[in-house]
Amino acid sequence: MVVESESTKDESVIDVQDLVTYYGTRKILDQVNLKVRSGEIMVIMGGSGSGKSTLLRHMLALNQPAAGAIRLFGKDPSKLSAPQLHAIRQRMGVSFQNGALFNSLNVEENVAFPLREHTRLDENTIRIMARMKLEVVNLAGFEKLMPSQLSGGMVKRAALARAIVMDPSLLFFDEPSAGLDPVVSADLDELILRLRDAMKVTIVVVTHELDSAFRIADRILVLDKGKVLILGTVDEVKSSDNKRVQNLLNRKSEDVIVNPDEYLQRLTDDLAGL
């Protein structure tokens, strides 16, 4: 039997504690708790409006919690100086849903951008590094293409190459499979797994694609209306007898139940004469 030592157990790259956040008066995340362990692939799932993208923004230290706390690499981002926060962000890579490539830069320049922005490496080193990462994502030979010339899958892979160009120890994917056909999506999943194994990188994936989640996840967090519905391994999530989890797995929509007072307030907030 393998006994997990205390130090191993506490090796959380991300530690979310009782996180609460609002957009206006609307509660988006409600008492969310989550520890992402070093080297694991954590998949965050949930329907539209479940709060998964907001949770991602907190993990990127872009949002401040209304209550609760978040720690990245053991540090509370709200208590860091700008240079300290910058140093933490340099250890993180993000692959955005739409790629977020610079339209005026070609593929290689896009991938090299973080290196030119954040390092003083020799130009030769920068170009070799960018091309290595394009090789990793199977985009070798497409260096000179502009983003407008790329397919959806190629945009995702170029964005991934840029996300890993600084060798991050923590990598985020926002909807990596969205808009991709199943074969391209499966290729991307394979790539994510290869990266984790080769670079020992901790990966957080936000997705609503079940097939992809089950292929790559070590653990899955399912959010529902801002609350943690379940946190467990793929098998634990699949075998859950929770009705809402099963509805999510079976892609059944549910009637939205509103709080009448809050709903009325949302509809009439800030209106003249009310």
């Binding site: 080193t125 070799i128 590094m129």
Partner: peptide
């Protein structure tokens, strides 16, 4: 060794 180190070897 990170990618910048490997890039130095490549060069």
């Amino acid at each position: 060794i990170d990618s910048s180190g490997v890039a130095s070897l490549v060069e």
